[in-house]
Design a protein around this nucleic acid. Structure first.
Length: 638
RNA sequence: GGGCGCGUAGCUCAGUUGGAUAGAGCAUCAGCCUUCUAAGCUGAGGGUCGCAGGUUCGAUCCCUGCCGCGCCUACCA
């Protein structure tokens, strides 16, 4: 509601400038550095100064004197060299909050598709995958909270090189039969087993380059979809997908549909895309040079600085399509531009009844996916070049709208701090030890597994919870520890802006104090505790608002809880879940101060006590809304 | 070589389309638990916003050059 007020004030000033000076300007509203300057400020007079040939301060004074009164605004003041500071009508804001201002919801005009996670189904998920999934999931929650219809896709590359490599490992290195691998799948931590096997086969290739032929042959077997080895590939990939879904579920991350590469192949999505690309001359057949015999996209199509010689191979000389080619087909499908569709079957139903479908070749479940208006691909920034090629493909096909609405929601990688590498017993070269971080590598088996990290967080939280809450049952303690682990992990991954490389460090990730998820949870729990202890209470008397809000501290707290929508709007506009996380932290800081300054339950002034309880409830509501957008659960106790 | 990104306190990072005295956490030091949970609160120290120019009334932010670092630049994904 503060959000709407800000827009309204900006609009009123803009309107007045248009009438008074005949100038159409956008009035920027900002938050003053100091609370003493008021709630909003605009430097609009500075911008007008040059054109009006008047000092900014004179213009500001003119504006303040002539502006008609604005609803919800108590006063306007000129400050500094020409700022216009806005002071709000405190009681009016409180009254609006009491009546329950509706959260700002933008009307969605079509489905938004968010694709995230996309882990190769050949080994356990690691910390880098978690950043992708948590960013994607949080962004989805933000979009949904703002009223948009969102479909969450998790693409499964179940026929790619990485799966083939692990199958090679099972077949050639371990000489295991389908049945033997089936037994492994039924056991514990199959994804961990594959993690090690993948590292082994990668090393084996390195030591025995001639064995790379195994990989080529295996890819053919898997792509054909027939025979024992293809069955082995399916077994491995499906089992690992289950592991990943379970890992993500621990963090509250769920999906709507899993499109799969195997279906893209078998349903010949690529053939349709290939036909269109050829017809529209988006790609051409290279007859000379290093790419002779390939279908390529000219470099100038996806990068204006490139020469056409820097073309990107889409179809190899042996006739097989590259990943980018398949990705173009998949992206076309997302917009409903391919003229083909998957069929689906129900893969699982989540605890809350939410169904998850997986793509299949034959009709089964009567559901539809795709046909999005806007598509966000959550993919790390190392793949920006490939994402450019995909968009260029859409452009070349004449799908300008789709190209414009294809958004690479990029983020930097998660690396490991040298200290953490040493803790994990990873040997570092002198060169690596001197760097600020060390890149993780699935091939080397170098990385922090997601489940290990979650386990470690739960253990650490449980020790703390148990020592503080001896009277609680083991189940209750565990539930809280789990919530704290999720809160700590999700907040840790969200507090960095997207283009910051995270140097993962156990000590920082396991911290529960300071700017962390548990700090936010702790504040929310404390607010809940006050409310439950106070029991039923009446709404505060509106007549008391003016008196109580004259107290600067209380006014600042009311402002803080009223800023959730603003934080959301900012986070959404910037595409930065980190902004939402920061707001959650600031809210927690505000509550910590409130908690310290006002002994709510012990307040003797009845009117004030009623108001303080109401304020506590406002805090609690803001926490619940914000935490749920961040996917951070609030435990019953801490 | 080219493309993209980064460089802000001892460390890790924010910094709202250019705006008022550049912020937070950690770490360090000094305080605060018979009062709704100390996973907390208060205070202190700590800055040439990589360097040099330019644009502007005003630059951490925009432009140019330079220095340092990272990623990408495959008929891998």
């Amino acid at each position: 509601m503060l959000q709407q007020l800000e827009t309204r004030i900006g609009g009123a000033v803009s309107q007045h400038i248009l009438i008074r000076y005949g100038m159409d300007v956008v009035v920027a509203m900002e938050q003053p550095k100091q609370a003493a300057f008021g709630e909003f400020a605009t430097p609009v007079a500075f911008g007008l100064a040059k054109q009006l040939r008047k000092p900014p301060r004179a213009i500001a004074e003119e504006l303040v004197a002539e502006l008609p009164s604005i609803d919800g605004v108590a006063s306007l003041e000129v400050a500094g060299g020409g700022y216009i500071n806005v002071r709000l009508d405190r009681a009016a804001l409180a009254l609006a909050a009491l009546r329950g201002g509706s959260p700002a919801v933008t009307e969605g005009d079509g489905k938004v598709i968010v694709e995230h996670t996309n882990i190769n189904p050949n080994k356990a998920a690691h910390i880098g995958h978690l950043r992708n999934a948590v960013l994607g999931d949080t962004f989805v929650r933000m979009l949904r909270a703002s009223g948009q219809t969102v479909e969450v896709q998790n693409y499964i590359d179940n026929t790619g090189v990485q799966v083939a490599d692990v199958v090679v490992g099972f077949h050639h290195l371990e000489k295991k039969s389908l049945e033997e691998v089936r037994a492994l799948v039924a056991g514990e931590k199959f994804d961990y087993y594959c993690w090690d096997l993948y590292a082994r086969i990668s090393q084996y290739y390195k030591d025995n380059p001639e064995s790379l032929q195994w990989r080529k042959d295996m890819l053919h077997e898997i792509e054909s979809g027939e025979g024992e080895l293809a069955a082995l590939g399916t077994l491995v990939a499906d089992a690992i997908v289950e592991c990943h879904l379970n890992t993500m579920l621990r963090l509250g991350i769920v999906y709507d549909v899993l499109p799969r590469e195997s279906e893209i192949l078998h349903m010949q999505f690529w053939a349709s895309a290939f036909k269109q690309l050829k017809e529209r001359k988006a790609i051409y057949f290279e007859t000379e040079g290093k790419n002779k015999g390939c279908w390529v996209m000219p470099g100038s199509a996806f990068d204006s600085n490139r020469e056409d010689e820097d073309s990107k191979v889409i179809v190899r000389s042996n006739g097989t399509v590259t990943y980018v080619g398949k990705d173009i087909a998949y992206q076309m499908w997302k917009f409903g531009l391919l003229g083909k569709d998957f069929h689906y079957k129900l893969l699982r139903t989540y605890g809350d009844g939410h169904p998850l479908y997986v793509a299949t070749g034959a009709a089964d479940a009567p559901v539809n996916f795709g046909r999005g208006r806007k598509v966000f691909n959550v993919i790390d920034s190392r793949q920006s070049y490939l994402q450019d090629v995909v968009v260029a493909g859409l452009n070349a096909l004449g799908y300008d709208e789709a190209a414009k609405n294809s958004i690479h929601f990029s983020y930097e990688m998660v690396a490991l701090s040298p200290r953490t590498c040493i803790e994990m017993g990873i040997e570092l070269s002198d060169e690596d030890a001197a760097r600020p971080y060390v890149e993780v590598s699935g091939r080397k088996g170098l990385g922090v597994k997601a489940d290990d990290l979650i386990d470690k967080l739960i253990d650490s939280a449980l020790a703390e919870v148990a020592s503080r809450n001896e009277d609680r049952s083991a189940d209750e303690q565990f539930a809280t520890a789990h919530a704290i682990a999720i809160g700590a992990l999700r907040y840790f991954l969200l507090k960095f802006t997207r283009n910051t490389v995270i140097a993962f460090d156990f000590q920082e990730a396991l911290s529960f104090t300071g700017e962390t998820g548990p700090y936010v949870q702790y504040s929310a729990v404390r607010a809940g505790k006050i409310l439950s202890k106070a029991g039923a209470h009446d709404a505060p008397a509106p007549e008391s608002f003016a008196r109580l809000l004259a107290e600067e501290g209380l006014w600042q707290y009311l402002l803080a809880v009223s800023k959730t929508d603003q934080a959301m709007a900012s986070a959404l506009a910037a595409g930065e879940p980190a902004h939402m996380a920061r707001y959650a932290f600031q809210l927690a800081q505000q509550f910590a101060n409130f908690y310290h300054d006002y002994p709510v339950i012990h307040e003797t002034d009845a009117e004030k006590r009623s108001f303080l309880l109401w304020m506590t409830a406002q805090f609690r509501a803001a926490f619940e809304r914000t935490a749920s957008i961040l996917g951070i659960p609030i435990p019953e106790f801490m």
